[in-house]
């Protein structure tokens, strides 16, 4: 099995090296690609200096969705069977990779999402964030009937069929929730596995009150539209 770990990174110079090494320790067989989304700090150089990862430098910042899709296009061309997306800020544990991959390797699912809320973990966050996640969880269930306890989680593994779909069609900004609905819409099987996550180790979270309102509205609309598009709706 050819396995690719896609690490999107925007200004993560303090954590990127640790993330790469930790992935390399836990899954030595995996190829790693860092998508450096137009960082203004030394994220790109530091990732390259490790020598353990291919680094794609986006010449301009395109946002998380556009950066992730670049990783999926890289995976599609490289002939990878499985791709995992794992954040460059260190909130996802490489140690949990095997758990995330298990449902895919068993052929039970096309996409497996690492969830903070499936079982009780020591993850803590603000009530407003939990409320937002709860809302999207409910919305996904309402729209597609799928169970997703942590729909905003960006820690997920997908198989070849999903790699090809995402290479062609992936949501632009705040893509996580929309991607789940897109997958369900095309008849893919989802699974969840409980993972531990950290609060971000360094850098700054991009969420401000105004942005979270935009986030809620934009994602809700996008989810609704993805649902309305039905089976078709390719670009």
């Amino acid at each position: 099995m050819k396995l690719l770990i896609i690490i999107p990174a925007y200004n993560e110079e303090d954590s990127i090296v640790r993330v790469i090494s930790s992935v390399n320790v836990w899954r030595e067989d995996a190829d790693i690609v860092v998508v450096n989304d137009g960082s203004t700090d030394r994220t790109g150089e530091r990732a390259e200096a490790t020598g353990k990862a291919a680094v794609i430098h986006m010449p301009l910042n395109v946002g998380i969705g556009g950066a992730m899709q670049t990783g999926y296009r890289y995976a599609a061309r490289g002939g990878y069977d499985v791709a995992v997306q794992l954040d460059g800020d260190g909130q996802h544990e490489a140690q949990e990779l095997d758990k995330l991959l298990a449902p895919l390797l068993a052929g039970e699912a096309d996409c497996c999402i690492g969830s903070r809320f499936l079982h009780k973990t020591d993850y803590r966050s603000s009530w407003s964030r939990r409320l937002g996640i709860r809302f999207f969880s409910w919305m996904v269930h309402w729209m597609t009937g799928a169970k997703a306890t942590d729909p905003t989680s960006g820690f997920r593994a997908v198989n070849r069929k999903v790699i090809e779909l995402f290479a062609a069609d992936y949501p632009e900004d705040y893509p996580e929730v929309e991607a789940i609905v897109l997958l369900r819409q095309r008849g893919f099987r989802l699974a969840e596995t409980s993972v531990r996550m950290h609060e971000r180790q360094s850098g700054e979270s991009s969420i401000t009150p105004l942005k979270s309102m935009y986030y809620m509205a934009k994602v809700s609309l996008a989810v609704l539209m993805t649902r309305l598009r039905g089976e078709g709706g390719a670009l």
């Binding site: 794609i56 430098h57 010449p59 556009g66 670049t70 296009r73 890289y74």
Partner: peptide, 20 residues
């Protein structure tokens, strides 16, 4: 917007391939 994003993605992928 969609086209520009696709162009940036392809450019980045090409540059990576070239460096390798």
């Amino acid at each position: 917007h969609r086209r520009v994003t696709r162009l940036i993605q392809e450019l980045a992928l090409m540059q990576e391939r070239e460096r390798r």
